[in-house]
């Protein structure tokens, strides 16, 4: 039976007075937000103990929609801000949700070092292959050959394989999903948030307005259909084997899940030694 409704059960996690969100029709960001809210719902996280930190860009706006302590920081600096917040307030679960440009171009240095230090935060990096908010410019993940407003003749730069970067930098949990894998994404977010240490999930998301339109996938649906036809789940694969290239399959799955002491664990140990 079809019933007309006024509110969604997930609304309780949203800042109702800030909805509707700013994202375009067909944009994958709403799905990322949705999967995240389902994950915290299933984890039964106390919203008073959750902090979301984001940088700048379309993804950066996620922080403002979730009804918890949320910090919308400067471009690229979400991770160091989150580092300070997490270390100063170890009671908080700190999640960084930001875009590919924010986390891996202007903020790339912070990403690798937070992963290296094993700061106990979860980073959800939404990869839509371009800078959406500023009008669709080339980003650090734009596939070779793709057209953007600053690569009008096709991109000549090699993109980052974000999961490989995360793994090489020392992340204890690395997974990649597309927004079509919403349920698996939700499950991955749950796992990552339960992980002690630096966990990273790359989410491939559609950006029809500024990326898809210039790359023969003008609607979100076109991109979603592409994911259906071209993604292959390969759990445990070496992330270096999971490059993203135009016309090739997108390898998704949980690639890395290891244990090692976090910065906080090590620093607490150090403090005990110092005080003796």
């Amino acid at each position: 039976m079809e019933i007309e409704a006024e509110a969604n059960p997930m609304d309780k996690y949203l800042r109702a007075d800030r909805i509707p969100h700013i994202w375009c029709p067909g944009c994958g960001l709403g799905i990322v937000l949705n999967a995240f809210l389902h994950a915290i719902d299933e984890l039964k996280i106390d919203m008073d103990e959750l902090a979301i930190v984001s940088g700048i860009g379309c993804t950066g706006r996620i922080a403002g929609y979730i009804n918890c302590d949320s910090y919308h920081t400067t471009h690229g600096r979400a991770i160091p801000f989150a580092t300070g917040l997490r270390l100063a307030n170890p009671e908080m679960k700190v999640v960084v949700i930001s875009g590919d440009g924010d986390l891996f171009a202007i903020g790339g240095n912070h990403f690798i070092h937070a992963a290296r230090r094993n700061i106990d935060i979860t980073v959800i990096g939404v990869n839509n292959y371009n800078y959406g908010m500023t009008g669709g410019q080339l980003g650090p993940t734009t596939p070779l050959g793709a057209r953007t407003t600053t690569s009008p003749y096709g991109n000549v730069e090699h993109p980052f394989n974000l999961c490989h970067v995360a793994h090489a930098s020392g992340a204890v949990y690395v997974a990649r999903w597309t927004v079509l894998h919403a349920v698996r994404l939700k499950n991955s977010i749950k796992e990552a948030m339960n992980k002690n240490g630096f966990s990273f999930i790359e989410v491939i998301a559609a950006c029809p307005t500024t990326y898809g339109r210039r790359n023969k996938m003008p609607t979100g649906l076109d991109e979603m259909k592409y994911y259906r036809e071209h993604s292959i789940i390969r759990h445990g694969i070496d992330p270096s084997q999971a490059n993203i290239e135009i016309g090739k399959d997108i390898i998704v799955g949980k690639f890395i899940d290891i244990e090692k002491p976090t910065y906080s664990d090590a620093f607490e140990e150090l403090k005990k030694r110092v005080k003796k």
């Binding site: 067909g26 994958g28 709403g30 799905i31 079509l180």
Partner: peptide, 9 residues
């Protein structure tokens, strides 16, 4: 799960 706008459940 895949509704970006929380419009269906």
């Amino acid at each position: 799960m895949i509704c970006p706008d929380f419009a269906i459940f």
